[in-house]
Design a protein around this nucleic acid. Structure first.
Lengths: 333, 333
DNA sequence: CTGAAAGCGCTAACAT
DNA sequence: ATGTTAGCGCTTTCAG
C-alpha cells in the first residue's frame, strides 16, 4: 500500500476552508483570523501535511535552492568556503545543490546549465578563473551569481575575496624583514588571472617596494598539489632560493616536507610563507607561517551577498574584499 | 525586458507537433519518427529550449536529486566521502543537495524533513549514529536511504562501511607484533554505536587474541578534534601507555604533535595507529600509520547502491563492507 | 507514431 | 478575512 501524499487540498477540505487560506497560514500571511489559523494548523498536524516544495517552486518560480559550483569538495580550502556558504544558506532557508567541477571549464559549463534547468534561485561559483565562455553563460542566465574566493580580472561578476595582490606584497616585505632577499613565488598556472594579475603583480610590487629585482626564474607554476610541492622542493634549493611564498597550503606542506626530507632546515635554511591558512598550517611541523584569510567568512559573505541579490536588495559594493593579515608561525624567522 | 522562458509548448507550436511529441524526443522515447524527431530537435536548438526540471519533477514525481546529510563538509574524512557520492551521482545524472548537520540530532531531523519536502529521490546519510527518532523518520519516508561510513547497531538501513571491529582488532595485533603491550584506544563517545559496539569490542577482541587484559582506563572518549588530541597527549604518557589506536586522523595528528612537543619520540617511545587514512596521514611528520579505508569508494558505492534502490533494482546485500588494511608508516615500529 | 487532455500540488491575482 | 480560479511547465494515460 503506497503512502498517499496529503496535499493542501486535503487540508482545506478537512478544515472547511479554501486552499488559499491554507496556503496563507503555511506561508505566514497575516490575513488570516486567529481562529481560522488555529483550525488549519491543527488539521495540518493531524494529517501530517508537508508542503511540496516542487509544486511550490513551479507555482511561485522560486525554489529556495541555490547552486554551488566547486572545483573539489575534498580540497580543504574549498571545503571551508563551502561550509560557510551552507551555513548562511540554511540561515536564510535555502538549500544548496553542490556540484564538483574539477575546475575544468567543460564541467563548469555543464553543471551550470544543469543547475539552471533545476531552476536554482542563484549561484555561488568557485573556480580558478571565469573563462569568456563561462561569462557568457553567466550573463545569459537570469539569476544572480557571486564568485567566492575566485577572481576574474574584469571584476564584472559580484565577488568576495581578499586582496591577493596586497597580501603577497606584504608577504614579500615580511620575508625581507626577516633578512631574506632570495624569495620565490610558487603558485598555480599563470593562465589564471588570480595568479598572473594579482599574485605575480603583488610579488613584483613587494619586491620593488623593498628594492629587490624581479627574476623570472623565481616564479614556479604548479598544479597546487602536495605531491608537486614535494617534488619541487629540491629544485628550489638548487636555484639558490632562501624562501618561497606559496599560494596553496597543500602545496606548501609538500614543499615543507620535501625540504625537510632533503635535510634542509625550515626556517633556518629556508623559509616558507603559505597563502590560505587552512587547518593544515597548524598540523604540519614546523607550523606554516601564512597569509591569514577568513575562509569560512568568504563563503558566508558570498552567500549573504547572494541572498541580497535574490531579494533585490540594494548592494553598495558588489566586489567585497575581506581583511587578511600575515601570521608568523614556525616556517619563517 | 525580462527574458521570456521558452516552454515545451512553444517548441510544439513552432514544430507543428504536440507537446507530447516534444516530450518524447526530449526524453529519448523511441516512438518518434526520425523525421519528426529531427524537426523537433532543430526547433529546440533554434529556440534554445531547456526543459524545466521543476515542472518535470512535479509531473513525474521524480526530481533526479538526492539529499546528502553530512556532519561537516570541512571535515576531511566526510569531504572525501562526499566527493565519491557526488561523482557517482553525476554519473547517473543526479544532483545532490548537501546539508550540514554537525552530527546533531535536531539538525539531522530538520534537514531530513526539509530534504523530504524538496522531494528528493533518495538520501545518503552520514553521521555518528542513527538515533531512534531519526530511524522513525527514515522509516516514515517513502524514499530509499543509505548510510555512508555510518554504523547503526541494528543494521536496519542499507549501508556501506568497512569492518571497524576487525580493523581495530588487527590494529591491536599489529601493535603487539611491534613489541608493544600497553595499548590504548582513543575514539569518540561510547554513546555512539560505532564506538561502543564496533571499535571497543574490536579492541577487546584484539587484546584477547593476544593474551592481553583489557583495562577500562586505557580507553579515551573525545570529540575527535585536533585540539582534543593535542591536549590528551600528556595524559597518555602519564598513564603508562606505549601506544594508542585512534579513530580519527585529525585527533591522531593532535596526539602526535602534542607528544612531539612534549618531547616524546614517536614511534620510538610511543606509537600511534590512526583510523581513517585521510591525506593528513602523509602530511604530518612522522607520517601516521593507519587503518586504510577506501574513503572515496565508500561514498561512491553508497551512491551506487542508492541508485539501485531508486531504480527498484534487486540488491543482494544491503549492508556492504568494503576492504581495509593496515599500513605501517612512521608512527609505528 | 502522434495528439488530446487531465492532472502533479501549489501560488497568486482577483473577487467578495 | 476568505474563496475562486487560473495557471506554473511538464508527463502520462488514453485514443486513434
Amino acid at each position: 500500500m503506497e503512502k498517499q501524499t496529503v496535499t493542501i487540498y486535503d487540508v482545506a477540505r478537512e478544515a472547511h476552508v479554501s486552499m488559499a487560506t491554507v496556503s496563507r497560514v503555511v506561508n505566514g500571511n497575516n490575513n488570516v483570523r486567529e481562529k481560522t489559523r488555529n483550525k488549519v494548523l491543527s488539521v495540518i498536524q493531524k494529517l501530517n501535511y508537508h508542503p511540496n516544495a516542487v509544486a511550490r517552486g513551479l507555482a511561485s518560480k522560486k525554489t529556495t535552492t541555490v547552486g554551488v559550483i566547486i572545483p573539489d569538495v575534498s580540497n580543504v580550502y574549498f571545503a571551508e568556503l563551502a561550509r560557510g556558504i551552507d551555513d548562511i544558506a540554511a540561515m536564510y532557508s535555502y538549500n544548496i545543490i553542490l556540484a564538483n567541477s574539477d575546475g575544468n571549464q567543460d564541467k563548469e559549463l555543464k553543471v551550470f546549465n544543469n543547475l539552471m534547468s533545476k531552476q536554482v534561485d542563484g549561484i555561488v561559483f568557485m573556480g580558478k578563473d571565469v573563462t569568456p565562455q563561462l561569462r557568457t553563460a553567466f550573463q545569459h542566465a537570469n539569476v544572480p551569481l557571486v564568485l567566492a574566493g575566485t577572481i576574474s580580472k574584469q571584476q564584472i561578476e559580484p565577488s568576495v575575496n581578499i586582496d591577493y595582490h596586497g597580501a603577497i606584497a606584504e608577504a614579500v616585505t615580511s620575508l625581507v624583514r626577516s633578512g631574506c632577499h632570495e624569495i620565490g613565488l610558487v603558485c598555480g598556472s599563470l593562465d589564471y588571472s588570480i595568479n598572473a594579475d594579482y599574485r605575480l603583480t603583488g610579488f613584483k610590487a613587494g619586491l620593488a617596494a623593498n628594492q629587490l629585482t624581479f627574476d623570472d626564474n623565481y616564479v614556479y607554476q604548479t598544479d597546487e598539489s602536495y605531491r608537486s610541492g614535494y617534488q619541487l622542493a629540491p629544485k628550489l634549493i638548487d636555484q639558490g632560493l632562501k624562501s618561497v611564498i606559496v599560494s596553496d597550503d597543500e602545496l606548501a606542506a609538500g614543499i615543507l616536507n620535501g625540504l625537510t626530507d632533503a635535510g634542509v632546515s625550515v626556517p633556518n635554511d629556508f623559509q616558507i610563507l603559505t597563502g590560505n591558512d587552512t587547518k593544515l598550517t597548524e598540523i604540519v611541523r614546523p607550523q606554516l607561517s601564512s597569509i591569514v584569510q577568513p575562509l569560512y567568512d568568504i563563503g558566508a559573505v558570498s552567500m549573504r551577498l547572494l541572498t541580497k541579490f535574490m531579494d533585490r536588495d540594494n548592494v553598495a559594493q558588489i566586489n567585497v574584499v575581506l581583511p587578511h593579515r600575515i601570521v608568523n608561525r614556525d616556517s619563517t624567522k
